[in-house]
Design a protein around this nucleic acid. Structure first.
Lengths: 207, 207
DNA sequence: GCTATCTTGTGAAGGATTTCACAAAGTCCG
DNA sequence: CGGACTTTGTGAAATCCTTCACAAGATAGC
């Protein structure tokens, strides 16, 4: 299959959220126009995005909400459980695992790790914090798919290497640091400093 | 001035982080090649990004670290204090305000708000949580520039409207919801669900 | 001062993404 | 059943962003 742009995948996520809302309200059909209005894009963009994966609508009528919801879930790979480990038993990881959409979409926390002796062994949400050095051994048993990396900026690369050695091939990185991963490992960076600086830039360049 | 791509501004942020590291190590000069290697891009991209704002290097030599650091800080609008209010006294806001780069780059928390009576009046980091209904009045006195919106997905739009009424023109939104702002107000969305779904998509579409 | 070498700054080319615009397919109603 | 209307799916055009490639400016060594 042709490579799909990152921006397309992100928009599918947004469409899905609105579709779930429609489903909860028992609304049976929607249109590219309506999806666009609630997703901050245009109807042509919605149709183009969906067209990469098939044609799910009916001309003149629009899209069946349950069907399109299912299709997008399938496209995004949300039809199964994803096993997640959180590296860094701090506030960000906690916010994430308490987020109700997290479990709802099939993401399950199978372990929480830290390197701080004061945290190891303590209760943290529904988990007990484990020593980060045990990640590689544990991974053989727990088979996590995704690591959420939420540690301070120091030695981010070392932890990325450890995660990769543990056989995990997807990382959500909250540390404000640039990291390299071998090919075959996907990293998404969420960088609050960068976003704030983007706002600072926007505020500074108003005419 | 010509409109600058969002991606360019984000990369400037990354360059700045590396430059600060070089500065801390008292290294006097660097090159587009070196900046690129530490920022996950190419040297041509670095030079092109900088060229939108001027020419800061010396041919054959590279860039002066202190000078380029200053210039990028200026471009990003980091030469001044930015007054920030946090709406939603939860873990995300707390993680953000405890992040050491936050104060370092001139972002100051001038108020924390919530609508939960159990939180209002309580201590939260170095602040006392105030009632969200007071935001508009307080803003006249505190003159915040940026609002960090970190509440659950319900009624995000209502809070955005309140923030805009309070005269704040930049919002960093952590709520997993699409929001509309009037022109002149900049919103950056940080959406963890979206990022996770992006990873799910990547894991599902490996050959 | 001359040559070899380095690295920037930047037009032009190439590639990717978004927008346009319209034929095709379906519904609705008289 | 036919005409008016709606909305999709998609090539083509337009726009935006990245990469290429190289002249020009600067240094260093002899």
């Amino acid at each position: 299959m042709k490579r799909i742009a990152d921006s397309t995948v992100r928009r599918l996520s947004v469409y899905l959220r609105y579709l779930e809302e429609l489903e909860a309200r028992s609304i049976a059909t929607t249109s590219s126009d309506e999806l666009a209005a609630h997703s901050g894009t245009t109807s042509a963009q919605v149709r183009k995005d969906l067209s990469f994966f098939g044609s799910f609508g009916k001309r003149g009528l629009g899209y069946s909400v349950p069907e399109l919801t299912d299709r997008i879930r399938q496209i995004l790979g949300l039809g199964r459980e994803w096993r997640v480990v959180i590296v860094g038993a701090g506030k960000i990881g906690s916010a994430l695992s308490n987020y109700r959409g997290f479990a709802q979409r099939g993401f399950t926390v199978v372990g929480v790790y830290d390197n701080d002796p004061r945290k190891i062994g303590k209760r943290w949400d529904a988990q007990t914090v484990r020593d980060i050095v045990e990640l590689e051994d544990d991974a053989r048993r727990d088979r996590p798919d995704i690591a959420v990396l939420a540690i301070p900026a120091d030695d981010v690369q070392g932890e990325v290497d450890r995660i990769v050695r543990a056989g995990i091939r997807a990382i959500l990185n909250f540390a404000p640091a640039q990291v390299n991963a071998p090919p075959g490992v996907t990293i998404k960076n969420v960088n609050m400093a960068m976003e704030l600086e983007g706002l600072s830039y926007a505020l500074s360049h108003r005419e």
